[in-house]
Design a protein around this nucleic acid. Structure first.
Lengths: 153, 153
DNA sequence: CAACAACTTCGACTTAGGTCGAGGTCAAGC
DNA sequence: GCTTGACCTCGACCTAAGTCGAAGTTGTTG
């Protein structure tokens, strides 16, 4: 029973992944990653956790929440490395998400462009000002911006 | 006429802007908007606050933090309501921000696509797995990797 | 004038995504 | 076999962007 070379300590994972050890424990608590324990109760990670972490960080970058990631990862078979089809399925979902986000941002940009073009100071009739028809809330706490029922300056 | 017809109560502003009154006080506390007070200490808003709020909500939609917005608004001389050229300048900055985000998302999507295409199970040499070239130049150990909704600037 | 809606402040609470420190344990080198 | 550093748990704290409720005040209107 020699210690398998694939098992990594939390410090090693932190260093290799760039994810702080505090965050690693946090992710584990949230069920995003998993570790074995030594006889002395210390965490030991399979190398595959690095891939998982890349996954997680990527998802965050895309703007997905950890909960989203958790749900996505939960569709993977428990303790094994994702196969090509697992991976493909997840990636496909993410792509849809990405496409949607890209789309939304592009629409927003175009509106902004037209706003600048028109110099619509009052914003009263400005498309940018009245976009709740299309945009769900994407901001932090941002409830949707309702049309200011007229009004303006 | 001490009570000008243009002055709006917090309830009116909330209704017209769609921003909850709690958020209005919160924004005021954060220095994003401003109000006068009646003799009885109640807030009264100039109509221009509606424009400012549209501004703020738009910025949030673009993904900017309230602090970013605060800083942007602070660049306006004497903290006034944006004129056409102010608006144009700020909007241009937001566009840059938007462009950058769109760009990042598109790159990410394309990587994901190529990953699926190549079926690179190991990810070891996969582009998706090795995107630190763009992000992690913040230093070794990189706890700097900000999660989603990074503030621009 | 009395009722009542709208307003005030202040502190506590929320969710997401963590970080920090205290107090204690494990593992490895000399 | 001791020292040192890496690790453990647990609870407190943090920021952002607010929300909620209590207790008290103002303003409007019948």
């Amino acid at each position: 029973m020699s210690k398998l070379p694939e098992m990594l300590t939390i410090g090693q994972v932190a260093e290799r992944s760039g994810v702080p050890h505090t965050a690693l424990r946090f992710y584990e608590e949230r069920g995003l990653i998993h570790s074995e324990r030594t006889a002395g109760n210390q965490r030991r990670y399979a190398r595959s956790v690095l891939r998982r972490l890349a996954f997680i960080r990527t998802a965050q970058r895309v703007g997905l929440s950890l909960e989203d990631v958790h749900d996505a990862l939960a569709t993977l078979p428990d303790n094994r490395t994702p196969t090509k089809s697992d991976w493909s399925r997840l990636s496909t979902n993410w792509q849809a998400e990405l496409d949607a986000r890209i789309d939304a941002l592009i629409r927003l940009r175009d509106r902004l462009t037209s706003c600048i073009g028109c110099g619509c100071l009052s914003l009263r009739s400005c498309t940018l000002h009245n976009f709740d028809d299309e945009q769900a809330s994407d901001g932090p706490g941002a409830p949707k911006l309702k049309p200011a029922s007229e009004g303006g300056t």
